[in-house]
């Protein structure tokens, strides 16, 4: 599709923003599929501007201390921990 809203570079760019590695085969497939899907979304242009009069109310509760997870429970699903902390990769 020549008028596709996305090319392979655009797909690589959003994948980078979303922190998802893609191999070249994925980039190719997604570029084609995103063209179809985004073209379909373009019909949203026809939607009139709507006065959104949502009736929203704040939901409040007293700010009281209750039991939460223990440190051990919070850490139990981490692949690596150290001295009671989550262990992550280098920041940079």
């Amino acid at each position: 599709m020549s008028d596709s809203p996305v090319d392979a570079d655009a797909v690589r760019h959003v994948a980078d923003l979303a922190r998802v590695n893609l191999d070249e085969e994925d980039v190719e497939t997604f570029t084609e599929q995103f063209g179809d899907i985004l073209s379909y979304f373009d019909a949203l242009d026809e939607v009139p501007s709507i006065d959104r009069e949502a009736e929203l109310v704040n939901v409040m509760r007293p700010d009281e201390v209750t039991d939460g997870l223990s440190q051990d429970e919070a850490l139990q699903n981490a692949t690596e921990t150290e001295d009671g902390f989550f262990k992550g990769p280098n920041v940079s």
Partner: peptide
């Protein structure tokens, strides 16, 4: 992949390992 879920390992910086885990 740090607090729960599949870990992307510990090589490279966090953007790279997160993107590995998510791939």
């Amino acid at each position: 992949g740090v607090r729960y879920g599949l870990s992307g390992g510990y090589d490279g910086n966090w953007n790279e390992t997160f993107a590995d885990a998510r791939e």
